[in-house]
Design a protein around this nucleic acid. Structure first.
Lengths: 245, 245
DNA sequence: GGGACGCTTTGAGCAGGATCAAACGCCCAG
DNA sequence: CTGGGCGTTTGATCCTGCTCAAAGCGTCCC
């Protein structure tokens, strides 16, 4: 990975080896945030920096679990499929999110980049050993996991109890909120996922997704910029339509 | 709490204070499993043993987060509701399950016992302090959280992509599997939740739940024993109908 | 043991979103 | 610049599961 090499060189030149993660775009949100300088150096030594293209598979359901990943740049899509091909997208991961930490020895879902992306990859056993020696890091990761769990709960409400319009409104507001929290551009808001992926996230069909977006557009609640960006024009009305929560 | 007192007395009489959790019905599945004797004693000293009646609220959405709980006996229902009353049940917790570990300062969901239940309750800051000193425990809790996350993922697939029949079949098989793993009776399998709660778990209505159960009964896949127990008669067919995964 | 309430079951009609089908338009390659 | 292909939009029809309604039944309390 040329980028790893150049990043490392850059660190060395600046005499910044004590905290290489300082150069990381996601350092504010990452695990690293909870580590002191010495721990960061140790963790960085265990990391393999990945540079990934668009539509690149990180792992698939059934694969043995070898690594855990910390996404630092780009968007990743996590999904699970039934035998007949029906797919449920579990979430769209943004910089700072963790993935791959699963119970058991095989992955139960698929992970694929939507955009070009960067991630720190760790061998799972090595990573767990690190956690065993760094209770702070383990506790921080536990907090990240509980945030993921809360996010999953909101998603379950969306899938189980919301109408099509509420689902799309919630999806847009949630994506904007999470993007904003990572200092990504929110106006216009990038939609790196296809309509099919929005459908598989919201439990709808592409036709319904398209129709609802069309209705929100004609209602002047949003403005569609091509197919892969959106400008939210009426926050409070969209919030109201989302069913909140 | 009379039961707390009597349990403690019982420990003392047997000279078993070194590992009081040995008497706990859920010791095999609990956090305690990952602790050595000394850690168990320390943790037990932090615990407040709760004895709860049926239909007893542990906490509600909006409450400040004060405690975390480790369920040791009984069934607890976790749910989230929208402003207009629509409810999504997130899960039915069984002995050994953790609850209450949420990000932020207020609970985002409701927790209520379905049956009489027992739990160990910990003050959250005290518990976090314990984790900080016991990386093993923190790591174990992280594994529990990742199991919850995997369970949530299965639930998202159920809610987003399965038909009514598949949802009910999946619900029954999942409940049986999880009950079995806790050494609870699985044949017949107790259903401590009402039809309304099954509906709010599966994202259906009570009428649809009742109709699907009726169809499974007439198809001789299950036998209903009153309204709150079921005997699974044809495993493999039910498995097939569940859409698996 | 009897009564009443609440949960569950069953039925009839309806509707939101799915399916099937076709046109549109953006983006990229040649 | 132009053609092709894929992703998206729009339209017509269908069907699964919801809503409204009422009867059945278990259980719990008196």
């Amino acid at each position: 990975m040329t980028s790893t090499a150049s990043l490392h060189e850059f660190c060395a030149r600046r005499g910044d080896l004590a905290a290489p993660c300082r150069l990381c775009g996601a350092r504010e949100f990452n695990l690293c945030q909870a580590l002191d300088g010495g721990q960061q150096v140790k963790l960085f030594a265990l990391a393999h920096r990945l540079q990934l293209g668009k539509r690149c598979r990180l792992f698939s359901a059934g694969d043995p679990v070898r690594y855990v990943y910390n996404l630092t740049e780009g968007t990743v899509c996590l999904s699970r499929s039934l035998a007949d091909g029906r797919r449920q997208i579990l979430g769209f991961l943004l910089p700072g999110d963790f993935l791959g930490f699963e119970p058991g020895e095989t992955h139960r879902c698929d992970a694929e980049t939507l955009t070009e992306a960067k991630a720190c990859r760790f061998e799972r056993p090595v990573f767990e050993e690190f956690l065993q020696d760094n209770a702070d890091a383990a506790l921080h990761l536990l907090r990240l996991a509980s945030t993921d769990l809360a996010q999953a709960a909101r998603h379950e409400v969306l899938l189980g109890r919301k109408t099509a319009t509420e689902r799309i409104a919630s999806f847009l507001l949630d994506l904007r909120q999470r993007s904003g929290a990572r200092h990504l551009r929110t106006q216009p808001l990038a939609l790196p996922m296809t309509r099919s992926e929005i459908a598989d996230y919201t439990g709808l069909t592409i036709e319904t997704v398209s129709r609802v977006l069309g209705r929100l557009r004609s209602g002047k609640l949003i403005e569609l910029i091509g197919a892969s960006a959106v400008r939210i024009l009426d926050d409070s009305e969209l919030e109201r339509l989302s069913g909140s929560a």
